[in-house]
Design a protein around this nucleic acid. Structure first.
Lengths: 330, 330
DNA sequence: TTGTAAGCGTTATCAT
DNA sequence: ATGATAACGCTTACAA
């Protein structure tokens, strides 16, 4: 590996001059610049990032925490983040928290040791009190996640509107018995409160009372979706429509419904959330709420980088738009 | 951030002694060791990885190159790699090549600058001559990818057997007109030659001649699958079965077949490759070849780490088993 | 415009 | 068993 000294030696100049060329400092004669550039090329020279980092200069790596990368939502988000980061000459250190608090803390420590310059968290497991102390070592931002107690940038979509659109769509179609799944609890705080609010709001506007036996909490996977459908059919009073928290749950619901001999949407209408490729694979194709995943990742990187460059981002709390995509499950 | 000097100062010992404690050197009195450990704890000391790296010591990051992380196959693979790496105290720097040769070279350079200690490539864009020179900076291994000209470890599944099983399954069901999709070319070398071989072998054994108009090359996505199905229906002589190169292509084929009013498997039987969650979402559920993705990622990390520790891995070229999963599309 | 030298946090070598 | 010191590759005062 060629070092800066090799370049200096080859050109007969000092390390400082070479460094200045590398870092695009002003006040360098054109001829020496050319000379240095030629030498760097010849030697295949690349600055050593560890040295730069140690010296307190250049930042180049951002960390991204996802719960599980195999979840398509997060893999799409990561794809967008990596791409945007790369365009800005940043690399991405990727972690799965696996919904494990200790692992999350381990990652946060990487900020402390400057392994990463900043952190994008797409989900958080610990509470804010645990995370807050790490913010003094580097910027941490939330993307997709929401923490009401935190005061750091959060990139998110208008979840309330998403849930509202879904419920409203059902109501417009004449449904009044509308079930609801959430990944968290049906409570007034927590990350799902916005969606809960949207759902409630639409019902309220239409004068439809809430039926607690149609609310399903802590649902995430395809299997959960199947289970929900099984539970629904056991109810005395069956809902005619269900708004699931994700396309995955929706998939489970639809698969199970068909297995039970039910017709979608005639017997039960289904709306998902995310608009993943699987939405098109399902039969009937899934009506769902589209999240602007690509935009979310892009925005997250932009905000983080502007924080790293000490310039305040224009908007630290952008709220990205959601959209109802009507297909055949409603 | 506390440094080693802070610890030295607090204990009244030298940096050397502290360093020895950190690195578990022998010949340290129990009492000083305790003393140092206590101080490190108090200060919340963490060794600075950049410094260690610069000093040519400790390694802790592996790089993983995938084509597109949003592709479920690769997101599952990455999930497994990250998890295994974490269990071994390694971090994962993740890159998407986006099938771009230059970006790939950029990543390879990270090995040169010791940003990553080793590299797992799950697909390669450049040819071996371009990649080979980088192997002198650190171990590079292939996982899922195969390069006949290379002599580095390759973790892969028995692709030949996978394709053979699929074709054989069709034949056993009485099919003789069996179409085939590949991500590459239908040639004697290249990454898909093993699958091509398996397909041909099964046909040959059954005395079925190859029909070139049923061979589709360079197929990858759902859209490609739809296109293939459209092309098939235009043929004078229609195949009755198709072995696609991935579950994604299979999804496209099935979706399009239904749109064209064809019944799967009655009018056309379909087999995918991978066994992704989407295989269960499709209607009919997809018969497919299951790859042991989790095992692949795990094995890849194990081999890479043993290379990093200079110990030869027991088996540098493991070939993992595939399996036919019969569902309703055949 | 260019060069000299100090220092970032570690660990290895050489003393003691 | 412990300590002093140099070196890893880089950037940045400061000097010239």
């Amino acid at each position: 590996m060629a070092t800066i000294s090799d370049v200096a030696k080859l050109t007969g100049l000092s390390k400082s001059t070479v460094s200045r060329v590398i870092n695009n400092h002003p006040y360098i004669s054109k001829e020496k610049r050319k000379l240095v550039e030629k030498a760097m090329d010849e030697l295949g020279y690349q600055p050593n990032p560890s040295a730069r980092r140690l010296r307190g200069q250049l930042t180049s790596t951002i960390g991204v925490v996802v719960p599980r990368i195999a979840n398509p939502f997060f893999s799409y988000l990561l794809a967008s983040i990596e791409q945007t980061a790369f365009q800005n000459n940043y690399q991405v250190l990727m972690f799965q928290s696996n919904e494990n608090k200790e692992k999350e803390v381990y990652f946060l420590n990487l900020l402390k040791t400057k392994q990463v310059d900043g952190l994008i968290m797409t989900a958080v497991e610990n509470d804010w009190n645990t995370i807050e102390p790490f913010t003094k070592y580097g910027p941490i931002i939330l993307c997709n996640e929401y923490l009401s107690s935190a005061s750091i940038p959060m990139i998110r979509v208008n979840q309330t509107k998403g849930a509202y659109l879904a419920a409203k769509h059902f109501i417009d179609q004449g449904h009044t018995k509308i079930a609801y799944c959430t990944g968290g609890l049906f409570a007034d705080d927590g990350k799902d409160k916005d969606r809960n609010k949207g759902y409630q709001q639409a019902l309220e506007e239409a004068g439809i009372p809430l039926n607690p036996s149609w609310i399903f909490i802590n649902k995430h996977s395809i299997e959960d979706g199947k289970k929900v459908m099984k539970d629904i059919i056991e109810l005395k009073d069956n809902p005619t429509a269900i708004f699931t928290g994700s396309d995955e749950i929706a998939a489970g619901v639809i698969i199970q419904a068909k297995e039970l001999g039910l017709k979608v949407p005639e017997d039960i209408a289904v709306i998902g959330f995310d608009d993943q490729p699987s939405a098109e694979m399902l039969d009937p194709k899934l009506t769902t709420i589209r999240q602007p995943i690509e935009q979310m990742g892009q925005k997250a990187v932009e905000v983080l980088l502007s924080l790293l460059n000490k310039s305040e981002p224009e908007n630290k709390m952008p709220e990205l738009p959601v959209e109802l995509v009507v297909r055949n499950s409603t």
